[in-house]
Design a protein around this nucleic acid. Structure first.
Length: 256
DNA sequence: ATGCCGGGTCCTACCCGA
C-alpha cells in the first residue's frame, strides 16, 4: 500500500499539481492539509476521473484536511477526540482502509497567537498522543501522517533558520513528539534514513529553495506491524521545483 | 529577525503561515 501526505497550501491553487502527482506517484491514499476551503469548493472533479474518492473536513480560509483514496475507505473521525466543543479548526481526519487506521494531521504551528497559541499547539499534541495510545492499545494497524509542524531533531532544519524559542523546535514540542515515538510509533522517514537532511518544506521567501534552507515538518508515524513492512518513505523534492508550488512537498510511504 | 512570498478574504489592505 502506498500512502502520501501533502500540505498543499490551498487545494484550489494546487489541484493541477495534485492531479499530476497522483498520476506520477500513484498513491492508494493521499492525505491533504491546508486545503483552505469548505467541502463544496473542493475540486473533487480533478481527482475522481483518476479513480479517487474525496472525503473533506473543510474550513473557510484556513486549515482544512482531506483524504483522497482509490481503495474503499470509511471515515471514522472528523476531529481529534477531547478538544473543546467549540474548536472549529479543521485539522484532523481519520479513515479506515483495508483494516488500517489512517489519521491525517495538520498540527497547529504555535508561533502565532502568543502564549495562548502555543498552549493550543501543546494541548492539540496531548490529544493526539491520547488518540495514538488508544489505537495502539487496541492493536490497530495505524498510520498517523501529515504536517506535524515539528522539527524533531537538529538534522531537521538548516542551521540558523529557526530561533531557539521557535514553536517548531521548543523542548516542550519535541518532548511531545518523542512521546508519540515512545508509545511505539516509528518515524518512517528516519527509520530508513536515520541521519542527514530529509526536508519537506522550504519557505517561499529569502531564496530558501534555491539555497536548500529547509525544514522537515511532514512525518508519517507507523504502528509496529506496519513499521516492519515499511519499504520506502521519501519526500518528493521534485514538486518544490514545479511552477507555483506549495511550500511543502509530498511525502510518499510504501508498506508491503 | 521575520513579513522578503504567496495563500486567504470583509475587494483591497491586512491576516496568516513556519
Amino acid at each position: 500500500m502506498k500512502i502520501g501526505t501533502w500540505n498543499v497550501n490551498s487545494i484550489r491553487s494546487r489541484a493541477g499539481h495534485v492531479r499530476r502527482w497522483l498520476e506520477r506517484a500513484a498513491p492508494d491514499v493521499l492525505l491533504l492539509q491546508e486545503i483552505k476551503c469548505e467541502a463544496p469548493a473542493f475540486p473533487c472533479d480533478s481527482f475522481e476521473p483518476l479513480g479517487y474518492r474525496c472525503e473533506i473536513v473543510g474550513q473557510k480560509s484556513y486549515n482544512g484536511v482531506a483524504v483522497l483514496s482509490r481503495l474503499p475507505c470509511e471515515i471514522r473521525l472528523r476531529a481529534l477526540p477531547g478538544l473543546p466543543q467549540d474548536d472549529a479548526q479543521a485539522r484532523y481526519v481519520e479513515a479506515v482502509c483495508e483494516g488500517i487506521a489512517i489519521g491525517g494531521i495538520y498540527l497547529p504551528n504555535g508561533n502565532s497567537g502568543g502564549e495562548a497559541g502555543y498552549a493550543y499547539k501543546l494541548a492539540w499534541m496531548d490529544r493526539l498522543i491520547e488518540r495514538a495510545a488508544a489505537l495502539l492499545e487496541a492493536d490497530t494497524p495505524t498510520v498517523l501522517a501529515g504536517d506535524y509542524n515539528v522539527c524533531p531533531g537538529d538534522d531537521d532544519f538548516s542551521p540558523g533558520l529557526l530561533a531557539p524559542g521557535d514553536a517548531l523546535i521548543r523542548p516542550e514540542t519535541r518532548a511531545r513528539f518523542r512521546s508519540l515515538l515512545w508509545l511505539g510509533l516509528t518515524d518512517a522517514i528516519r527509520a530508513l534514513q536515520p541521519t542527514g537532511r530529509a526536508f519537506t518544506f522550504w519557505d517561499y521567501q529569502a531564496g530558501c529553495w534555491p539555497r536548500d534552507k529547509g525544514l522537515r515538518l511532514d512525518h508519517a508515524l507507523l504502528s509496529p506491524t506496519l513499521a516492519e513492512r515499511l519499504i520506502a518513505a521519501v519526500p518528493d523534492r521534485r514538486e518544490r521545483g514545479e511552477d507555483q508550488p506549495s511550500d511543502h512537498v509530498p511525502v510518499l510511504i510504501e508498506i508491503a
